[in-house]
């Protein structure tokens, strides 16, 4: 395309004249949106009967949220990895079954599953290449990228190419008639300054993690994500599930930046089916039967 230099300069000067200063943000700081103390965050969940209520309250507190502008984007670039214990609640004390307040049936199921697990009887859908689903997505290991754009935030996890899309363009969830359970549900959100608030519904039933409780497809969650220092992103999570939980389960998930000075660290396509352990069959007694495969002397290293 040939463009006259005079036209370009004129265009540029015109644009300069039209450029307005970014409006002052009225978004409350993260500290004003949610309390700092753990117990106060638990209490915040208890104040609201549903995840929808909590989300609406946070949105009201943020004056409806502020759309992100390319001029002022949070920098969440790089690779991240979850830190903490391999439980949904990384602060779970030793010897405790779970910090979730479970309904009796869910508590009994978890106790039974933990007992069987201790005997080596266990089946995990991930073994057969199914995705972990949300909210388990929050606690699985391996690399993550948190890519922010004004209209959507893409939460990538390397495991089975997991990708959550969080719509921050003002759209609502799909109408109830069109909603059906999905591994990652449907996530909408808003920004308050550089704090991302997410509401997720429409999830499939699953487990919070291998040694954690089950949840039903009525689970909904509210998350508040923010970068707390150059190497840390945290997510406050309130999970509501009237089927398995007697009250919202608050946890804080922490993701640390993975050093990548020479930029050699890259995320490649994860083809789970290449793993010779697959297909894994769930046996009648609930344990895992791996495909037959043999180790040769070469493999015995």
């Amino acid at each position: 395309m040939r463009v006259s230099a005079t036209l370009v300069v004129a265009l540029a000067l015109g644009l300069q004249a039209c450029t307005a200063e970014a409006p002052e943000s009225s978004a409350p700081a993260a500290a004003e949106l949610v309390p700092a103390e753990h117990d106060a965050k638990v209490a915040l969940g208890l104040e609201h009967a549903t995840a929808v209520d909590l989300y609406a309250a946070l949105k009201a507190r943020a004056n409806g949220g502020t759309p992100l502008s390319l001029d002022d984007m949070p920098d969440w670039s790089g690779f991240w990895q979850r830190v903490g214990k391999p439980f949904f609640d990384p602060a779970q004390p030793e010897g405790v079954l779970t910090t979730a307040k479970l309904k009796p049936a869910a508590a009994e199921e978890l106790g039974r599953r933990r007992e069987r697990s201790a005997q080596g009887i266990e089946y995990d859908p991930i073994s057969d290449c199914s995705p972990p689903g949300f909210p388990r997505w929050l606690v699985i290991p391996f690399l993550r990228e948190l890519t922010v754009t004004p209209e959507q935030t893409y939460l990538f996890s390397e495991t089975v190419n997991n990708l959550r899309r969080v719509y921050t363009d003002g759209r609502e969830h799909p109408p109830e008639a069109d909603a059906y359970p999905l591994f990652y549900g449907d996530s909408i959100g808003f920004w308050s300054g550089h704090t991302l608030v997410i509401h997720t519904s429409q999830v499939r039933a699953g487990i919070f993690h291998r040694n954690d409780p089950q949840y039903s497809d009525r689970l909904e969650a509210v998350e508040v994500w923010r970068k707390t220092d150059a190497e840390t992103v945290t997510a406050d999570v309130w999970a509501y599930d009237p089927v398995t939980l007697t009250e919202p389960w608050y946890t804080q998930q922490t993701f640390k930046q993975v050093p990548n000075l020479d930029r050699s660290l890259r995320v490649d396509y994860w083809h789970c089916g290449e793993n010779p352990n697959n297909t894994v069959i769930r046996t009648d007694d609930g344990t895992s039967q791996f495909s037959d495969f043999t180790f040769t002397e070469k493999d015995n290293r």
Binding site: M1, V3, A5, V8, V9, L11, A12, L13, L15, Q16, C18, T19, L70
Partner: peptide, 24 residues
């Protein structure tokens, strides 16, 4: 090269989004 220099000068002066304009 001349066109590129002119464009860079113009865009730097503009300081505004030019998202749909391709100066390749």
């Amino acid at each position: 090269r001349t066109r590129k220099v002119l464009l860079n000068v113009a865009l730097a002066a503009a300081g505004a989004a030019a998202t749909t304009v391709s100066f390749a």
